[in-house]
């Protein structure tokens, strides 16, 4: 039972007066260790480490956008399409990525390299349009910048 993952979650639990508070950091950790998403095995590991049921853990994971219950590509490209980004041309940026990658928003390239997503406001409205690549903000990104980003992702894969 005393796996490295289990031990790390025990440390997270100690930060909080009640151990359930560690569910988000534990899920994030599990996601990092399972290639960016939460297969049922990962959800069970979190449940065991927190002394909770898998059903409880799923109920949490399914509530939050940054926790993935389906496989994702090795890279994640997220394009904000909320108002300020939309006004600054987010749709053409999203179309650019979709065209360059050959996937619809929400999809993953056939080779499993990139998942493309449209997301809600990322808090970069003053530098719109915002694109988040593997957790790092790129702002602003215009349609003309798309192919360089895709090339970069393929080169670093």
């Amino acid at each position: 039972m005393s796996t490295p993952f289990y031990n790390r979650v025990q440390k997270l639990r100690k930060q909080y007066p009640q151990s359930r508070s560690a569910v988000l950091p534990a899920l994030r950790l599990a996601q990092e260790e399972h290639g960016g998403w939460l297969p049922s095995e990962a959800l069970r590991e979190v449940a065991d480490a927190l002394d909770e049921t898998p059903a409880y853990v799923v109920s949490i994971a399914s509530f939050y956008d940054m926790l993935n219950l389906e496989p994702v590509g090795r890279h994640l490209v997220e394009v904000c399409t909320n108002l300020s980004c939309a006004l600054a041309g987010a749709q053409s940026v999203l179309d650019g990525f979709a065209g360059e990658l050959g996937v619809r928003p929400g999809g993953t390239t056939e080779d499993g390299v990139v998942t493309l997503r449209a997301i809600e406001c990322a808090g970069g409205c003053g530098h719109a349009p915002v694109v988040i690549v593997d957790g790092a903000y790129r702002e602003p990104v215009q349609a003309k910048d798309v192919s360089a980003i895709v090339e970069e992702l393929r080169a670093f894969d």
Binding site: D65, E70, T81, A86
Partner: peptide, 10 residues
């Protein structure tokens, strides 16, 4: 903003 694509849940 015509045709702007709103995200659906993952």
């Amino acid at each position: 903003i015509e045709g702007i694509f709103a995200p659906v849940s993952q």
